[in-house]
Design a binder for these strands. Structure first.
Lengths: 188, 188
DNA sequence: AGCAAAAAGTGATATACATCACATCAAAAA
DNA sequence: TTTTTGATGTGATGTATATCACTTTTTGCT
């Protein structure tokens, strides 16, 4: 089995153990893709049929507001799941973009294939359930930090909690993720 | 079958159909509870063994910051799921509170029972998976609104999208949910 | 290496919003 | 009903952060 598939299997089995048969079935629905820096996994206005799991590299998902300003929803690095989830879930056109900050390798999984997998392999329903729960908790914490903390406190916290990410991301984008202007961030 | 259980079954079957046998098994793990206004479902510092599904009434989940200010994570009304999810998931002590804004009736479900249900009844793993996905999307949208919109825009939006909720919640709490001071909200 | 483009730093100024203080009004409790 | 408590409104003032304009530094191309 190739390196990338092994990595995916390990990621899943951290939460749900699989039989060989289940794994074969699951793996057959994931498709390996590669994109260079600056290329898009999801583009605003287009259909979003897939979610993505990053094998290697770094992407960002973000929306552009009325004034043309970019607001970052998520950074996706190794072993992260990314998409424009509202569009993915409701089969609508993307309102977000997802593009590569680094040359990236990732698996893509279609909505229908994910549903098939979850209904055929109960362990996978539980895997995605758990992942979604953890993502939910993560977003709750981000909301709390937006409600309770100053720009400076949020910056300090992310420096502590995601030191590896920080080194791969320009401060301009970090500022956007934290909801601060790049000038203010630069003065902290 | 009592009214409350019927309501719960309908709620689940909007997403996943159940056999009679499955339903009986599931229902046996939910416990009906009642609390008056101002009483707590979850209290900061205590263990959080349960999540709750509101049958009737209204609750809020919130954290208190260093300065004693209350920040609302969520309002939970009829058919909403509520808990201190970080504490619930990781079996830690609550950092949030959940209390009743109105006299309330709700089901409680323990973490272990939820896991049991999800592993015994695959349809329920898919039910909770879907619910969690929808919750995740909801939180993403809230984050985007915190990053991109002014206090006024956020207020207008919630007035439009949740008119029924607005009428049951004092503006003071709405302000806290939106991340604005009550004085500012009053001037919008 | 040499040049263009992007990132980061910094001063001056503007502004959305918070905070404080107090008045009014409505609703629950005694 | 009277009293108390909580909710709401509003002025005066303060402050964190945005915005604009420009410079310096770093990175990526050719």
């Amino acid at each position: 089995m190739e390196q990338e598939h092994l990595q995916l299997r390990r990621h899943i089995e951290e939460i749900s153990k699989l039989t060989e048969e289940e794994w074969e079935f699951i793996a057959s629905h994931f498709h390996l893709r590669r994109l260079k820096k600056h290329h898009f996994l999801v583009q605003e206005g287009q259909k979003v049929d897939h979610e993505f799991w990053i094998v290697k590299g770094l992407v960002k998902s973000y929306a552009i507001d009325a004034k043309g300003k970019e607001h970052i929803m998520q950074f996706g690095m190794e072993n992260y799941w990314v998409s424009d989830y509202p569009a993915f879930q409701f089969k609508r056109e993307a309102t977000m973009n997802v593009d590569c900050l680094e040359d990236s390798v990732f698996f893509s999984l279609s909505f229908n294939d994910r549903e098939t997998i979850c209904h055929q392999v109960p362990a996978m329903a539980n895997f995605f359930r758990t992942k979604s729960n953890l993502g939910y908790i993560n977003l709750q914490q981000r909301i709390m930090s937006l409600l309770t903390q100053t720009a400076e406190e949020r910056y300090e916290e992310i420096l502590q909690k995601m030191p590896h990410l920080i080194q791969r991301v320009p401060k301009r984008l970090l500022a956007s993720f934290l909801g601060v202007s790049r000038e203010t961030l630069s003065r902290l």
